[in-house]
Amino acid sequence: MREMRETRGFVLGPYNPSPTTGLVDVPPRRRLTVWNALWLIAEGAWTILVGHWVTLRNFWRKKVTDQYPHRQARRNWLPGPGYRGDFALITDWKTWELRCIACLQCQNVCPSGCIHITPEGRGRERHPVEFYIDAGLCQYCWLCVEVCPASAITMTPDYETAVDTPRKLIRDIDYLRTRGLEFDDVQRPLEAQQTAEAEHEDKGE
């Protein structure tokens, strides 16, 4: 059986402390002869040289820094699928009106209470007159998107949502409509989620 001990000074052998005990599995100690010591020194020098070779290679490698916003390093950079950025209301491309049927489900389900809708009309005519989302309150939990029966509300991958006054954090219906039109490839709430989940499962396997 191998001896377990705490290390002191030079470690003669691989340094692999056990994660539970913090002890090191020390290989059976060889006699420290001159040749052993020289071999250890040469080994150490070699590892140091390898380390320097790695850093030297990295020194000349292409840098990964994006000098955002000073200079957009990559054009049209978008975050990965499933990113929850600014909000949008989706316009139906046949009728050219918002898909939203003002059912108030999103307003009710929202845990932060950041959605305020003023509905108008009945039956098929029912639509929102005012639609406010307070981005300062929102926790981006995706519940409103999930609950929407018309797939009308979503979050775009737009990450540049900073504003200069808190008042501007409250998005009104015009803003939301414009966002929905601006983002051609908005994340289709249901389909996007399904594909993202499928991809996640694929990666999991």
Partner: peptide, 14 residues
């Protein structure tokens, strides 16, 4: 600069 370049960064640029 050297530390940045070794870590694949650019270092001070602004």
């Amino acid at each position: 600069k050297v530390s940045g370049y070794i870590q694949s960064r650019l270092g001070p640029m602004r």
